[in-house]
Design a protein around this nucleic acid. Sequence first.
DNA 1: GCCCCCCGGG
Length: 679
Amino acid sequence: MNGLSKKLTHLKRVVKTTATAEKCKSLLENCAKTKSLRSTKGVHAHTITLGLLPSLSSNHLLSLLTAAYALCGHTSYARTLFDELPRRTLLSYRSMIRMYTEKGLPNVALKIFGEMLRSDKHKPDRHTFPYVIRACSDLLLLQQGIVIHGLTVVSGFIWDTFVGNSLLTMYMSCGDKKGARRVFDAMQARTIVTWNTMISGYCRNDSPKEALMIFKRMADAGVDADCATVLSLLPACGRLKDFEMGREVHSLVEELSFWDSLSVRNAVVDMYVKCGRMDEARLVFEKMVNRDVVTWTTMIHGFISAGDIKNALWFSQRMQLEGVKPNAVTLSSLLAACASLPHLRLGKCLHAWAIRQDLQSDVNVETGLIDMYAKCNSFRLGYQVFAKTSKKRTVPWNAILSGCLHNELAREAIELFKLMLSEAVKPNDATLKSVLPAFAIEADLRQALSIHSYLVRSGFVTRTEVATGLVDIYSKCGNLDNSHKIFNGIPKKERDIILWSTLIAGYGMHGHGEMSLSLFNQMVQSGIKPNEVTFTSVLHACGHAGLVDEGLCLFNFMLRNHSDSLRVDHYTCMVDLLGRAGRLEEAYELIKTMIFEPSHAIWGALLGACMIHENVELGELAARWLFKLEPENTGNYVLLGKIYSAVGRWKDAENVRVLMDEIGLVKSPAQSVIGAATR
DNA sequence: GCCCCCCGGG
């Protein structure tokens, strides 16, 4: 009797527990759906009090609890529960992957996905793939993405629209337009999201034309645009400066009543700005009832790009009057304008404004300030701003380094660069773009070897632009062996015109004309079309090595095959080349046949040659032009005077001196000061 | 569950 009663109580308890567990499970499903952390914690506590956890049959409950915490975004609870799960379920894997992707930890998401595949117990489903693909997309892991694409094909989930759309995003984010296109073409069911992904993807990958084409196809397919569509379409029109198309999208926006969305209206304003239609932009702007900082910044930047600083400033003021606060974008845009003008006083006003708005510690504003001061030739003020930055991020360093170069402080740039490395700040392409020329200017072989070793250690040396910089540095140091070695280290198909031209110029500047020519021929044979810079370098090299016939031959080759690349510089080189060789008449004939207005450099080259070869007649002719083109250049008078003296025409030489006196050249410093005061 | 979310640039 007693035993039976005990059994009954036990049974009752089991039934009750099971019922409670079922109740909890359905509650947890609801928690996951509503993403309510509080309810999840409540149910969690309940399960513990009731003794439902831990028990042998509690795996399903725990898995639901993990999923609920994951969906609420509570990483630590989810992780702990997930790690303690007796048996991981598809649901637990899926929710953990989703959580980490959404929390911006795609690498952790992929790690869990890897564990899931290795466990070989669960296959990813159509709810798992979109997050795994998104993780690849965020990490720009195209190769892994392609593998996962393969998995979706094998498992058949490729036909799920969500999976397909995710793949489109992944390919587009990784810049693989063709990959995206293949998925798109094969898709059986396309939704508005599919079309939007393609449009925005093309737009983000510098293919606004394709973006518009997809939009046209979408319209033909009878699919109506939504907000997302126009938000991608408008920048595409702006990028193409396609005013007509932009206007069409604008009217579409008004028809479809997306007009309520401020972002859409801002995008319309921006489109007109990008098309260079400030009048239309302003019309839309003035009709807007409420405007935010983006609206104002768009207009301000529009005026700046149109060179209309007055209106840019006027709108900055209006913005303040309307009580809209500028943000870092507004300020850095205005600072960039000050830098390019340059306008120091205005820049200082903006600095003050930034301080009042408490934006002076924003890294973008800091960088803008450093750049502005440097471009306004106030390097010291820029350095003061730089000194106050946290120095953890690369960009302010880049700004101060480029500022050094702008202010001809190459040695300081090198010192700062070394400091940057010692502070463990990672340089990027922009850093090297400023720093490498500094090493070239210094032309110090020891420094060159040191930067070279750094570039090898850091792996930057494999980049063609960096190698080119290094070739230039060694050339300027006179170490052409190293220049050539670095050149040889670059794979043949990665050697671009700039790399070739740098090496050619390097040999040229040290008098190795034959080597320059030979490299030039190799370059042409390798299929690279020479440009005007290459031609200048080779002609210059020929001139400095006395290779007259080779230079002439090359010049004629240019006239025949590359006449579109012809510049005044090339004629200057040729006049110099012929002149140095004493072929002055030929040089003068060449000047007469030019299609360009002869520059002072050309007449200067002729005059210089006339001095070497004591040719009075052509010397006088060249000098006459030079006196007209650059009357203040003392050197030209001196050269002519020297020619006269050389041939013994002392009277004429004296006349040149008198002429110089008359225009106030060559006076002692004291005399010039007096002259300036009395004039 | 997937897409778009507008302003600049060292």
